[in-house]
C-alpha cells in the first residue's frame, strides 16, 4: 500500500551490530547520531532491538563465532528489512580477508543491500547508506528486500 511505503522511507529504525570490526566504523556510526550529523532528522532511530528495526547496520566482517549471531539478528527482524554493510570490513573483510578466523564480508552470511565503503566510513557516508536502504524499503512495497 502506498501509505506504508511513504511512511517506511521516513521512519527507518536501525539495529546496529558490530561484528569483527576495529570499532572505527562503529564509533563513526555512533557519531552519526549526534548533533553535527543528527540522523534523527530523517526519522532514523537506533533502536538497538532487532525486533523493532527495519535496517540492520553491520560494521566489521563475519568470523566463525559471530556468523551465528549475525544470522540470528537478521532473522529476528520482521519484514520488510534491509542490510547496510558499513566499512570495508563489512563489505569484504578488507585487510583481514585472509586471516584464519575470518569468513569474509557480511554478505557471506546474510544478503546485503547497500555497501558503504571506507576505512573507517565517514558519518555522512553512513547516513547516505541508511537513506539508500530506506528508499529500497519503500520501493519493495512490503515484500521485503534482503528477505530470503
Amino acid at each position: 500500500m502506498g501509505v506504508y511505503r511513504w511512511a517506511r522511507q521516513r521512519s527507518p529504525w536501525i539495529v546496529h551490530f558490530n561484528a569483527a570490526s576495529c570499532n572505527g566504523c562503529a564509533i563513526e556510526f555512533f557519531t552519526a547520531m549526534t548533533p553535527i550529523y543528527d540522523t534523527e532528522r530523517f526519522g532514523i532511530i537506533n533502536t538497538g532491538n532487532p525486533k523493532h528495526a527495519d535496517i540492520l547496520v553491520m560494521t566489521g566482517g563475519a568470523n566463525h563465532r559471530n556468523a551465528r549471531v549475525i544470522k540470528n539478528i537478521f532473522w529476528q527482524m520482521p519484514a520488510p528489512k534491509a542490510v547496510v554493510a558499513v566499512g570495508v570490513c563489512a563489505c569484504s573483510a578488507g585487510i583481514f580477508h585472509d586471516c584464519y578466523n575470518m569468513l569474509g564480508g557480511v554478505d557471506k552470511v546474510i544478503p546485503v543491500d547497500v555497501y558503504v565503503p571506507g576505512c573507517a566510513a565517514r558519518p555522512e557516508a553512513i547516513i547516505e547508506g541508511i537513506l539508500r536502504a530506506a528508499e529500497l524499503l519503500a520501493e519493495s512495497g512490503g515484500e521485503g528486500v534482503g528477505g530470503d
Binding site: A7, R10, S11, W13, D54, P78, A79, P80, G144
Partner: peptide
C-alpha cells in the same frame, strides 16, 4: 509528525 510515520510504518510491518 514523525510519530505518525513510525506508527504507520510499524502497522505495515510483518506480524511477528
Amino acid at each position: 509528525v514523525q510519530p505518525f510515520f513510525d506508527v504507520i510504518k510499524l502497522w505495515g510491518k510483518e506480524r511477528v
